[in-house]
Design a protein around this nucleic acid. Structure first.
Length: 197
DNA sequence: ACAAGGATCCTCT
DNA sequence: GAGGATCCTTGTT
């Protein structure tokens, strides 16, 4: 039994938190996952949802750190972020892929009868596996009893590369190596644009 | 009230 | 490797 990482863990720049989150655990009820791939979205970043100001959807991004920011993408997928940095600055880390630790049977049951092996590579699959929706947006991850980020074991060997699906961003942000993944893990998406740290 | 587009996923070839 | 699915959020009339 380990306590969740404290609020202060998330009160840093999104890129620092992104690197430090690889190998940590994400738990919701019976399901525990090890984080294997993330992306940092930062203040002044034209790919960040907070770049064009605050709205009802992205409000948690501007709030204090250590809270979830959950939104719906393409009308289907629930994307899970953890807010970072000081209150007032829009920044956070998107969870893109995980490895199963516990509760894989529950995850499989949540896949709506879909056949084939359960995969956790891709942000939409993480939201589904943890049964999160936008009602969880704003929920703290440093308190026991809901969604928790646990210490796990940080990964020393990492890969970095550009983020996925943000071609609309300014080139300086589009090409920035703000995606981080665990090296030597099969639970990583879009591997071809990643390189050793 | 409406139209447009999206930090994706899955199923083909 | 390419294209369609699918529906919520946002900004504009």
């Amino acid at each position: 039994m380990s306590a969740p990482l404290p609020e202060a863990f998330f009160a840093r720049d999104a890129l620092d938190v992104a690197h430090d989150l690889i190998g940590r655990h994400l738990r919701h009820e019976a399901v525990t996952l090890r984080i294997t791939e993330v992306e940092a979205y930062r203040p002044g970043d034209s790919a960040c949802h907070g770049f064009r100001g605050e709205s009802a959807r992205n409000r948690p991004l501007f709030g204090p750190p250590g809270r979830l920011y959950v939104y719906v993408c393409y009308g289907i997928h629930r994307m899970v972020n953890v807010v970072t940095g000081p209150e007032g600055e829009p920044q956070g880390v998107l969870i893109r892929a995980c490895a199963p630790v516990e509760g894989l049977d529950v995850v499989a049951a949540r896949r709506g009868g879909r056949t084939g092996p359960v995969t956790l590579t891709g942000p939409g699959k993480i939201g589904a596996a943890l049964a999160l929706d936008v009602a969880w947006s704003g929920h703290p991850v440093f308190e026991a009893g809901g969604v928790e980020v646990l210490p796990g074991a940080p990964a020393a060997a990492r890969l970095i590369g550009p983020r996925v699906g943000i071609d609309y961003a300014e080139p300086v942000h589009r090409d920035a190596p703000w995606r981080v993944a665990e090296a030597d893990s099969r639970w990583v998406s879009v591997r071809k644009t990643l390189r050793p740290l």
